[in-house]
Computed example of a mutant assay.
Amino acid sequence: MTDAVPQFRKATESADIDALMETLAPDAELASPISGRLVFRGQDDLRILLTAVYRGISAMQWTDQIGDGAHRVLLGEASIGPFRMTEAMVIELDEDGRIRKLNPHIRPWPALTFLAVRLGPRLIRHPGVMRRAAGTRPHTP
């Protein structure tokens, strides 16, 4: 894969989790925008999290992309329940062009809170995922 970002955009807009997972490096990680402390790592844990996220929101559309090379920012919007939300997704690619790090920034606060309420019951079914995410910190170079 030379650049996973176009496939990531398409996969997240259509909630195609299998296509989304193909864009991620085996050691990919996502820092939670809800807690600021949870870091989800690895294909298995990210599949559970990203399935809950992208099947819980609707009308996801990436509107702009900033940057090139290994660092990108996608700007987008979606709906969650009765709320519209905007997102800035900071992406870091590995040397193979796969996504190594995802750092979402979501606003406004009511949409982020509603997302947390929606994700809670879906993720509580996977206590190991939550335990592993709580025991790690984001990797900083």
Rank of each mutant, 00 (worst) to 15 (best):
Asp45Thr: 07
Met89Asp: 10
Asp94Gly: 06
Leu49Thr: 02
Leu49Cys: 02
Asp44Asn: 13
Ser79Arg: 15
Leu74Cys: 11
Asp44Ser: 13
Phe83Trp: 13
Val90Ser: 07
Gly81Arg: 07
Thr51Pro: 02
Glu95Asp: 12
Met60Leu: 12
Thr51Arg: 07
Asp94Tyr: 03
Ala88Trp: 15
Ile57Lys: 01
Gln43Glu: 12
Glu77His: 14
Val90Ile: 14
Trp62Ala: 01
Leu93Ser: 07
Gln61Cys: 11
Leu74Pro: 06
Ala52Trp: 00
Ala88Tyr: 12
Leu74Ile: 07
Arg84Lys: 15
Gly76Gln: 02
Asp64Trp: 13
Asp45Asn: 14
Gln43Val: 11
Thr63Ser: 13
Leu46Trp: 03
Tyr54Trp: 15
Arg72Gln: 10
Arg84Ile: 13
Glu95Ala: 09
Arg47Thr: 09
Asp44Pro: 01
Ile66Gln: 07
Trp62Gln: 00
Leu93Ala: 03
Ala59Trp: 05
Arg55Leu: 08
Trp62Asp: 00
Ser79Trp: 12
Glu87Asn: 12
Trp62Pro: 01
Gly67Met: 12
Met89Leu: 12
Leu50Trp: 09
Gly76His: 03
Leu49Glu: 00
Trp62Cys: 00
Ile57Val: 10
Arg55Ile: 02
Arg55His: 12
Gly81Thr: 04
Ser58Arg: 14
Leu93Gly: 01
Glu95Gln: 04
Asp45Cys: 04
Ala52Gly: 01
Ala70Thr: 13
Ile57Asp: 00
Glu87Gly: 09
Ala88Glu: 04
Glu92Tyr: 07
Gly69Val: 08
Gly56Arg: 01
Gly67Ile: 06
Gly81Ala: 10
Gly81Ile: 04
